[in-house]
Design a protein around this nucleic acid. Sequence first.
RNA 1: GGAGAGGUGGCCGAGUGGCUUAAGGCGUGCGCUUGGAAAGUGUAUAUACAGGAAACUGUAUCGGGGGUUCGAAUCCCUUCCUCUCCGCCA
Length: 423
Amino acid sequence: MLQIPYIRENRDLIIERFTKRNLEAIETIDEILELDEQRKGTQQSMDNDLAESNKLAKQIGELYKSGKAVEANELKEQTKLLKEKSSEEKTKLHEIEEAQINLLYQLPNVPNEIVPNGNSDADNKILSEHGEACTFDFDAAPHWDLAKQYGLIDFEVGVKIAGAGFPVYLGKGAKLQRALINFFLDEAENAGYGEVIPPLVVNEASGYGTGQLPDKEGQMYHVGEDDLYLIPTAEVPITNIYRNVILKESDFPIKKSGYTPCFRREAGSYGKDVRGLNRLHQFDKVEIIQITHPSKSYEALDHMVDHIKGLLNKLGLQYRVLLLCGGDLGFTAAITYDFEVYSAAQNRWLEVSSVSNVETFQANRLKLRFKNKEGKIELAHTLNGSALALPRIMAALLENNQVEDGIKIPEELVPYTKFDKID
RNA sequence: GGAGAGGUGGCCGAGUGGCUUAAGGCGUGCGCUUGGAAAGUGUAUAUACAGGAAACUGUAUCGGGGGUUCGAAUCCCUUCCUCUCCGCCA
């Protein structure tokens, strides 16, 4: 959520930047600013009336004490009018504030200057490519066939016990999954991210805090009985640890990592992209988050990008880094880098990580602030990134490392799997 | 699920309608004291909005919302949360 003073001072810039998202926001923004003027005026007259009324109440108290009941009753008449007026103003103020916040909830984050224009993923900018392409002297099989052949993942039994998009990992498939989680967690630990195991459900306030609510309500599983949401990413519970917190400057940077299953309804996404592990309702992910001083967040973003590159290098996967265009940028992000690995059998790139600087967008909703050197309260910056999402890594590892009689495990993973080949 | 007790500042905790501008304590910041430290001692120490160049001022906030009253931390209604005991249970 954008801050009103920021909108007031940067109206034209924001409108221009929103065109990167193909968003025509001029009306909404001007309405927000107009409502803010109304809010100020209303609050001023309400405050004045309340101040007057407080003064009278004190006088009345003193008059009663000194036994001057008649004069006290005269003053009471005056307060009646003030009370009516101020309570009307209070109602009006609430209406204005509600209208204003509803508009604010509609506005996404302002894209960073370097975010390219564009409508869809076709307009994302490819920044770099790494690793070598796999070549096979046999017909490479897609991961769903390999998973079946070697008994690693059972999609059908997942359908039976839960539904499509809830695979069951078996044997070495399960072990490989667990190995990857441990590998990612250890790497995060080595990079200074403190490990967290958060709740897998969050309440409504947390959903609002990180920006999943109110606009992406349909993407989360909702436990109606208890009014809780299954987390779509560990970013939600971990970042919400810092909701309503005022940090000291010396607390920066805060670096946390967490492994959690993630739950996404993926309403409305069907078709060929959903085959196998490509798109699931439940998947595992190790997330890294940072909370930084505003002046340090882009430096932190670079470090997070480097961390993810390191993971993919160690796994020996061919990958590329993209700078998302405005049209593909998530609601809360000011800038996002995506990482895609090449799936040799499907002959396509698969997104395995998304790293974003959210700047103050979440911090404003979370009331995540810090006291600066002058003793003033400021909003912190939040960042998050997947490091990494498991299913597509698993898919690429299976496909890219297949040999005629099995699947080789990358060297870095062998200490975790305790086997170097699936056959 | 049943029964009960509670939600007050960074923390503990007093506070049954105006003497609260929230006592007292702890913690923390800055002084004084000291050869140095401890102890002692003085002082400061919430957030939001508005006005102001600033000092500062006004308003709101004692879990949230609403009400009674000239006046509410205190009384009433409502809602959320926490804790204890019982039941169930890894």
